[in-house]
Structure formats: C-alpha cells, structure tokens
C-alpha cells in the first residue's frame, strides 16, 4: 500500500511539531522514520493512520484519503505504549482485537498460535498482561498489531525493551512480511535498526532533513554511521516532492 504524505503541518499549543512534511512511501517496503524523542515521529505516524487530523496537507493510503474506516481494516497499529488490557491474558487480548478487526473465528486460533510462537510468547499465552514483564508486553503488543494480517503495518518503536535475540527474530519476520507484500512503517531512535529497513527519513524538529534508501543514506556518511547525518552542519530540509 503506497502512502503519500503531502505538505502536512501539525501544531500542539502553538508549537509546530510537523512542518510541511511531504513523503512517499512505496508499497511492499520497510520504511523507517528516524529521529530523536520529540522530533515528531509519532505525530506523523498518527496522522498517517488518521488517528489525529493534520492542521494542513493531506495523506492518502493506497490512493484513499485518511481517515477512512474501511482502510483501518487493512492497517495494523502498534502504539509506543503496550496498549493492552492488563486484566486479560495475551490470548484474550489477541482475541479481542481480532474480533474488532473482524478476523475469521476459524483461522484465529491457528494464526494466534503462530504469532505467539514468533514473538516467543506461546508458553505464556494464558498469563495476564499485568503479570508480564515490559518486554513480554511489547511482544504481545506486536502480535496484536499483526493478528489480522494487515497490508500496512505501522509500528511505533516496536523493539524497545526486547532482547537482541528476539529483536533479530522479529526483524526477520517483518522482512518476511515485507517480501509477502506488506508495507511496514517503523519509527525508531535506535540507529542500528535502520539497517533492517529499505528506506528511511530523518526527522529533526518537525522537518525531514534527509530521506532516501537506507543504502544511499549510509553512503552519504563518512563512516557508514547513519547517525552522523543528524550532526552534519547546514543539513537543511530535504527537498519535498511535488504532491
């Protein structure tokens, strides 16, 4: 699902959080929004999903303007917080959100088992969320975002608090989904994770300061460390494509 973000602005209480953001995210790619805390990554994600309105500009997903309720059935969203019901088990959380996404009851059990296996939570599926560790909650939250096999997956810092072994496993799975045609948009402030993505945009103070394929972005740095791009002087806002 191709995403087109066109001249999007957003302010909160006089503070400009996003400034004339324009982006095109190709379908079937893993796109990374990279930036420090407070740079506007989450706000941009929420506008892309239609969770909050932009002050100006437009967003289309698969050619359809957001917000669109039918489009939401094609999207999977993992917020920065775990956003799970503490008094329900992992299994019950999955079942609830699968129900909201109108997932077939016939396939739910098999899909849920497979997902819990991927996020290494199969053995704890009946454990209440309130009894789970932060990392476990993060993994279940990811499984919830994936349960209805969305065509567009929006993940806000998905691997924070996840151990390196499991993180690798999750990225392998995300790449597998990408190969099957799923578009994935990820935010992170962990520079190492950018190399797992196909394309990336660097956000600073509500501006996109660079955007390209990850390979090209790395090539622009002196030592292959994409983080350097944030420190290059006179790095101005990348030229916005025509909407």
């Amino acid at each position: 699902m191709k995403i087109e973000v066109c001249e999007v602005n957003k302010s909160f209480k006089q503070q400009q959080v996003l400034n004339q953001i324009s982006l095109t995210i190709a379908g079937g790619r893993i796109f990374c929004l990279l930036g420090a805390s407070g740079s506007g990554k989450t706000t941009l994600l929420r506008i892309m999903m239609g969770a909050i309105p932009a002050d100006g500009g437009s967003v289309t997903v698969g050619g359809i303007a957001v917000p669109n309720r039918q489009l939401l059935a094609e999207m999977g969203y993992m917020p920065q917080n775990e956003a799970l019901y503490e008094e329900l088990s992992a299994w019950e959380n999955l079942k609830f959100f699968a129900g909201l996404q109108r997932q077939s009851r016939k396939t739910f059990a098999a899909d849920a088992e497979a997902l819990l296996e991927i996020v290494d939570m199969a053995a704890c599926k009946n454990k209440l969320i309130r009894d789970c560790s932060g990392g476990m909650k993060k993994r279940i939250s990811l499984a919830v975002a994936l349960i209805h096999k969305p065509k567009l997956l929006v993940l806000d810092e998905p691997t924070v608090g996840v151990d390196p072994v499991l993180r690798r496993k999750i990225w392998l799975y995300l790449r597998q989904l990408r190969n099957e045609g799923t578009t994935i948009v990820v935010t992170t402030h962990v520079m190492d994770e950018v190399t797992q993505c196909d394309d990336a945009a660097l956000l600073r103070n509500g501006h996109i300061i660079a955007r390209d394929t990850v390979k090209n972005l790395i090539a622009q740095t002196p030592d292959g460390n994409i983080e350097e791009l944030f420190f290059i002087d006179n790095q101005s806002e990348a030229e916005a494509p025509l909407c």
Binding site: M49, A51, R69, Q70, L72, A73, M75, Y77, P79, Q80, N81, E82, A83, L84, Y85, E86, F97, L100, Q101, R102, V144
Partner: peptide
Amino acid sequence: FGQTLERMLMTPIR
C-alpha cells in the same frame, strides 16, 4: 491513557 482506546479506534469499529 493506556492507549487501548486509540488502538481500538484504529480498527474499523464504529
């Protein structure tokens, strides 16, 4: 505040 409402509203539910 747990963002479960936001997550719920990011589904096609009315």
